[in-house]
Computed example of a mutant assay.
Amino acid sequence: MFEKLSRSAGLRARRHYVQAMFRFMGHALEAISQVDRKVMDDARLLPNGLIFQMMVLPSGPSLVLEHTGEGRLRYLGPNYDGEVDLSIRFKHMAHAFLVLSFQEKTTEAFANDRMVVDGDISLAVRMTRVLDRMESIILPRLIASRAVKEYPDDLGLLQKVPGAIGVYRRVAFSMLRDLRKEALPI
């Protein structure tokens, strides 16, 4: 019985971790699209109004972003229920946990058939590049190297630190704004 309770608690902990990481990533992707020129250049090639979702099947945690134009992304939250143009879906919570805890690169998860793309694969590749760039900037190099296919050669400490500070500052303010919205009675 103790083993069953322990396994159940572990599953809940993974779910909460994945949920928290998706929320953080949504805010971080919005922020990085406002401060990093390479992310803006990649995102600019996405169709205006594109709705991107990353989620865990069948109805697990998710993040949803909208490309608003000029390479800017806007985080729509975890509970968006409208039409989605592009979706990257993890087949199982354990698969999402592997990627989001930096035990497996996103590209390896694709290769290991742990994810499904619903939509234009070239747009999914572009979004993966945006995700990789965000992770390279906000994570310490040792961790980012485990998370991304290839750590950017042109990302030195003098580029990384100001970019990371700008992203974390924007993430903190947008998450606080969300908490205030959630706390206000309707």
Rank of each mutant, 00 (worst) to 15 (best):
F52S: 13
V171S: 07
Y75F: 15
L179Y: 06
E104D: 04
D85C: 04
S8T: 08
A13Y: 05
A9C: 07
I32C: 05
V117G: 05
L29H: 07
L123M: 14
R133Q: 15
V84F: 08
H92F: 02
V161F: 13
Y17Q: 04
A20G: 12
L158K: 09
L100G: 04
A124M: 00
R23I: 06
R12K: 11
V56T: 13
R12T: 09
L158Y: 09
L155T: 04
L46W: 03
S6R: 14
N112W: 02
P162C: 12
D154M: 00
D132R: 00
V171A: 09
H27C: 13
S59L: 05
N48Q: 13
S87V: 08
F97M: 04
I137N: 03
R14W: 07
L155Q: 04
F24P: 02
G82H: 10
P58D: 07
L57C: 03
Q53M: 15
Y17P: 10
L5A: 09
A28P: 05
L155D: 00
D153Y: 10
E83G: 09
L158G: 10
A31R: 07
H95P: 02
V64R: 09
K38I: 02
A31L: 12
N112K: 15
R114E: 15
G163R: 07
D132T: 04
V148W: 03
T128S: 14
R12Y: 09
T106D: 01
P152L: 04
A13N: 02
L45M: 12
Q53H: 08
F90N: 06
L184G: 01
V161K: 05
